[in-house]
């Protein structure tokens, strides 16, 4: 995947639905236009949920989603740009 220079990182590790989406919304609200937010989640549902949220919400773009691993735990990474 392309490496994105995130302006902010939101750590929602350990949180489950609906918190990753809800906290992402608040974090995006604090961004300036063009800035990129990296969301780090352990919730596998966040892959579908954050994509769905970004697709149906004006003013945000899901640039990329990626999976990684940390200490044997799956991590789900999301790169969201505010338009």
């Amino acid at each position: 995947m392309t490496e994105y220079e995130a302006n902010e990182t939101l750590d929602v590790k350990g949180l489950s639905c609906p918190m990753p989406v809800v906290k992402t919304r608040s974090a995006v609200d604090d961004l300036s236009s063009g800035e990129i937010l990296e969301v780090v989640s352990t919730d596998s549902g966040s892959m579908s949920d954050l994509k769905g949220w970004a697709d149906s919400t004006d003013g945000v773009d899901m640039l990329d989603q990626d999976e990684s691993e940390e200490d044997g735990q799956a991590l789900f990474l999301h790169y969201i740009q505010k338009e």
């Binding site: 639905c17 609906p18 989406v21 809800v22 992402t24 919304r25 949220w53 149906s56 919400t57 004006d58």
Partner: peptide, 11 residues
Amino acid sequence: LILASTAAAFG
């Protein structure tokens, strides 16, 4: 509450 907070996140 889950649906309400999520829908609010959708604006």
